Computed example of a mutant assay.
Amino acid sequence: MKRILVTGANGQLGSELSRLSSDYPQYEWMFADRTQITLNDIDLLNTQLSKIKPDIILNCGAYTAVDKAELEKDLAFAVNHLAVEQIAKYAKDNNVKLIHISTDYVFDGTSSVALNEEAETNPINIYGASKLAGEVACLKENPDSIVIRTSWVYSKYGNNFVKTMQRLMQERDTVNVVNDQIGSPTYAGDLAKAMILILESGIWKPGVYNYSNEGEISWYEFALSIKEFGNYDCNVGGIPSESYPTPARRPEFSLLDKKKIKATYNLDVPDYKESLKKMFI
């Protein structure tokens, strides 16, 4: 029985994988939080991996506090770059399959067409730079890795845009949301299922893949959909990014092209509205 190690067990993606794991009893699942897999201590990390002896690693752990990363650059790079490099080295040396999760924030947002895996990267914040460094190190140390870039992740677990909007729309009469950042949301349950389907497919084609739900929308339009499904009595206003300044810049356009992952693994990618409904069931 193959042992799957999932890092970032308490995060959105780790939690969704945990929820799905009982449907795949052919694997021995190991869900590791930050005490069991310590991503900011490389020596300890290597010791921990050696003790667990996984056959497959799904690296969902990351430093994801985008604005805080501007002040905590060393920590962001330790977790998102150096730890990934170490995990990739371990995977290469021990013949372990590795799927590593990355982000649309590796792009600068200047594109006007959906970004494929070959599109030029140019992160505009520390978080994006640390994640790009992790991608590069992962594929350099272990070219047999699969890297999946995703965007705007949400689920019933953890903190995310959808849960924040659900709360605010019940507390306030008006909510303003930026309307000039374009992309597509990702329901973590869909991404978790896609990762398992890759493992189940019997096909292992290393490299970078994109995955998000279908749809090209702004955060404002996403908020309108949340209002619709929640039937909230709240006015939703659209504002430009300059009216909502944040410590870290966000890409204005980071819509991901999913043709590669759909063709390679015959994946059915749901429309974002179809997946968003699951938050209200």
Rank of each mutant, 00 (worst) to 15 (best):
K2D: 11
R3V: 11
R3G: 07
V6D: 00
V6Q: 08
L13A: 12
L13S: 11
S18V: 02
R19K: 14
S22D: 14
Y24A: 13
P25Q: 15
Y27F: 15
E28H: 10
A32V: 12
Q36K: 15
T38N: 04
T38Q: 11
N40K: 12
N40G: 06
D41L: 08
D41S: 09
L45D: 07
L45W: 01
T47K: 15
L49M: 08
K51C: 11
I52L: 10
I56W: 06
C60H: 13
A62T: 06
T64Y: 10
D67C: 05
D67G: 01
K68G: 05
A69E: 01
E72H: 10
K73H: 07
D74F: 12
A76N: 02
F77H: 01
F77E: 00
A78V: 03
V79C: 09
N80K: 02
N80V: 00
E85H: 09
I87K: 01
A88G: 07
Y90V: 05
Y90D: 07
A91W: 10
A91N: 08
K92S: 14
D93M: 05
N94P: 01
N95G: 01
I101P: 02
Y105S: 09
Y105A: 09
Y105M: 13
V106A: 10
G109S: 12
S111I: 07
A119I: 08
N122R: 09
I124G: 04
I124C: 06
I126Q: 02
I126C: 03
G128K: 02
K131C: 06
L132R: 01
A133M: 03
G134T: 07
E135A: 02
K140I: 12
N142S: 13
P143Q: 13
P143V: 02
S145I: 11
I146C: 11
I146K: 00
V147I: 15
T150E: 09
W152E: 10
V153G: 06
N159Y: 12
Q166E: 14
Q166R: 11
R167D: 15
M169H: 00
M169C: 04
Q170M: 13
E171V: 11
E171C: 08
T174K: 15
N179T: 09
D180T: 08
Q181C: 11
Q181I: 06
I182V: 15
G183F: 00
S184R: 01
T186S: 14
Y187V: 09
D190G: 02
L191V: 04
M195F: 10
S201Q: 02
G202W: 07
W204S: 10
K205A: 14
V208P: 04
N210G: 10
N210A: 03
N213R: 10
E216L: 10
S218A: 08
F222C: 09
S225I: 05
S225L: 06
K227G: 04
K227R: 05
E228C: 09
E228D: 07
F229L: 05
N231W: 01
Y232P: 01
Y232G: 06
Y232D: 12
C234V: 14
V236D: 02
G237P: 04
P240H: 05
Y244E: 15
T246Y: 05
P247D: 10
A248R: 04
R249M: 14
R250H: 12
E252G: 11
S254G: 09
L255A: 08
L256P: 02
L256M: 00
K258Q: 13
L267V: 03
P270V: 00
D271L: 06
K273E: 03
E274A: 03
S275G: 06
K278T: 03
M279C: 06
M279S: 02
